[in-house]
Amino acid sequence: MTRMGNMSGSAEPREVAKFDALAGDWWKTSGPMAPLHAMNPARMGWIAERLGPLEGLRILDVGCGAGLASEWLARRGALVTGLDAAGAALDAARAHAAASGLVVDYRDGTPESLAEGGFDAVLALEVIEHVPPAERAAFCAALARLARPGGQVFLSTLNRTRRAYLVAILGAEQILRWLPRGTHDWKLFVTPAELGGLLRQAGLAVTDAAGMVPSLTSGFRIARDTGVNYLMAAKKV
């Protein structure tokens, strides 16, 4: 049985169920999460460059899933809280962290439900495209609330372009079968202009944005091209 956890706020039950169903495959580098494994070094490196030394920083990983970003941060000395409404994915995260000798404070819930704040950084990676559009302003406001003054907020997502449809849905889901069909809905993808507007509405100052594109050798690299995958950084002023 899938445990939905604390479903108040931005978590859409159908979206949560998708990722609960993938919990057992999350750490398989050749499984359905292979694109995230390939992307993780580039996206986390970009974030780390903007945070500086990670040792001792309090970081909240919203929509942490089974802990791919959370463990990357914990291995570098950050004090990480992982938050997700997908209970089965959290179970996998806790088990993997324990087996790896890492300490991550994994919690069941949504950012709207989390009472404490004051984090040096708040991450929501590959999450907002799964948040219902009507809930996105509240979602971004919650991310802003959870960051300390001067803290940073980082998001990564998919742009709503024709190329993103061809790559992420037609290619990755329907042809190559890297992801289960229905993992993404192109209509829910978010343009950089829309995301920037949501963050500014939440009282954040957008400080940087970059694209992520497949490398010619392996994995992904940071680029100016935001036509498919992109990152955005903002600061709480």
Rank of each mutant, 00 (worst) to 15 (best):
I59C: 04
I59S: 15
D61N: 14
D61F: 14
D61Q: 14
G63F: 13
G65I: 13
G65Q: 14
A66Q: 13
A69W: 02
E71P: 08
W72R: 13
W72F: 15
L73V: 07
R75E: 14
R75A: 05
R76F: 14
G77L: 02
G77E: 13
G77I: 01
G77N: 05
G77K: 11
L79E: 14
V80S: 05
V80C: 06
T81K: 03
T81A: 13
T81N: 08
L83A: 08
L83T: 02
D84V: 13
A85V: 11
G87R: 01
A88T: 07
A89Q: 03
A89T: 06
A92N: 02
A93W: 03
R94T: 13
A95W: 05
A95K: 14
A95D: 08
H96Y: 09
H96A: 14
H96P: 09
H96E: 10
A97W: 02
A97P: 15
A97V: 11
G101P: 12
G101T: 02
G101Y: 00
L102E: 05
L102P: 05
D105A: 13
Y106I: 10
R107Y: 02
R107K: 14
D108W: 13
G109N: 09
E112N: 10
E112Y: 14
E112C: 05
E112F: 13
L114W: 11
E116G: 09
E116T: 13
G117N: 02
G117D: 00
G118S: 06
G118T: 07
F119V: 07
F119H: 02
D120P: 08
D120S: 09
A121G: 12
A121N: 04
V122R: 00
V122N: 00
V122W: 00
L123N: 06
A124H: 04
A124I: 06
A124T: 05
L125W: 12
L125T: 15
L125R: 08
V127F: 00
V127I: 13
V127R: 00
V127K: 04
I128K: 00
I128Y: 05
H130K: 10
V131C: 10
V131W: 00
V131N: 06
P132T: 10
A134W: 07
R136T: 03
R136H: 01
A137W: 03
A141N: 01
A141W: 04
A142Y: 06
A142D: 07
L143T: 01
A144D: 03
R145Q: 06
L146D: 00
R148A: 15
G150R: 04
G151E: 05
